[in-house]
Design a protein around this nucleic acid. Structure first.
Lengths: 193, 193
DNA sequence: CGAGGCCGTCAAGAATAATCAACGAAGCCT
DNA sequence: AGGCTTCGTTGATTATTCTTGACGGCCTCG
């Protein structure tokens, strides 16, 4: 029977592609995830290829190994590699009066109430190998020095004028590997204070 | 093998209870939903009893018959029959000065930015048999006349001082079946204009 | 009351998913 | 190169889910 007639609009996604993306974002191999979740690696392989449609209980077991809830899994917005990095020239500039200009990070403002911070990373500073992860979203602009930013499976050394924008659910880490201090103007949402 | 060892914390919920609640909220029988979704009624019965854990594809097919997305399904907050109606005496009153008092509809303010409206329903007014349904939440207080409010599988004739509060995702409908105009102070979120 | 309809549930067989074990490919080290 | 490890994939068997068809309960109408 032709079991599958779902909206192929999700392109390479489907549940399988979704699982693969999530797994890779968290830096896990099929076998490692299988071990944590208490299932076999073969099962994960089949699911990621959309050759089977897992039962809820199986999918839940697997996500427990990440860990991630079913709601998070289906809600998480995995738009095609939603631009994480914005180089200096890519910031859209908003003129404000004659002497003032805002340079907007990210696309149009959706429904995000952001809160900005001015951070300084001394040489060698590191938020730690245990990746950060929390609710909301965060963005930032490097104003001085260089900052190594890791977000999921993406990593980039940002310099003055460069920026980032990502969902804080994705594991992330900041490091200043240079010899001079680094300044960043960052923002997070929801306003957590 | 003892396949199920999920957190029974969800009490009577689980995926099965969740599906049952959603189905009943939409006023569908197992058979009717099965017909729409293109599955058998037996399957839905087994799922709702948590005697099986459906495959994602099956669950998706079923939800398509509602219709509802997987994300909505797992995100939807189905706290135990989260009070929909608040009778006049149940409104918590917030004193504000000596001559003013606010009567608060609903529980504590969570993270909802509401927007209020003053509506008037002439006799016979009806939002239509095609139930309303949209994002966000809405609340209201009847100030004059009588209003028949239908929310999911619950229905009640509200008079002056009575109120409602529900998630707009649940199908709803307002009717003035009386001979006099009806006034309602209502609010919805997020501010949709 | 008896027929008919619709409800939810259940048992047995058909269809689908998960496990187990093996395979080829790629990296790494001596 | 050769040996070793780890990766993701695949075929055959076992376990689970879905369909089919039938049951008792409840209601309504004649």
């Amino acid at each position: 029977m032709a079991a599958l007639e779902q909206s192929e609009a999700e392109a390479a996604e489907g549940v399988g592609g979704r699982l693969r993306q999530v797994r890779q974002i968290f830096g896990l191999t099929q076998r490692e995830l299988a071990r944590r979740a208490g299932v076999t690696n073969g099962a994960i392989s089949l699911i990621e290829q959309n050759r089977v449609s897992p039962s809820i209980s199986s999918l839940k077991k697997i996500l427990d190994g990440i860990p991630m809830s079913l709601a998070e899994f289906f809600t998480l917005d995995l738009s095609p590699s939603e631009s994480v990095f914005f180089l200096a020239g890519e910031l859209t500039e908003i003129a404000f009066g004659e002497r003032i200009s805002f340079r907007m990070v990210g696309r149009r403002v959706k429904t995000c109430s952001l809160q900005m911070l001015h951070e300084t990373y001394q040489p060698g500073a590191d938020t730690g190998e245990a990746m950060l992860r929390h609710e909301g979203e965060e963005a930032g602009v490097v104003t001085r020095g260089r900052l190594l930013v890791t977000v999921g499976d993406q990593e980039r050394l940002l310099g003055p004028g460069d920026a980032y924008y990502f969902r804080s659910q994705i594991p992330h880490r900041f490091r200043n590997c240079s010899e001079e201090p680094c300044e960043v103007v960052s923002a997070n949402s929801p306003p957590s204070f």
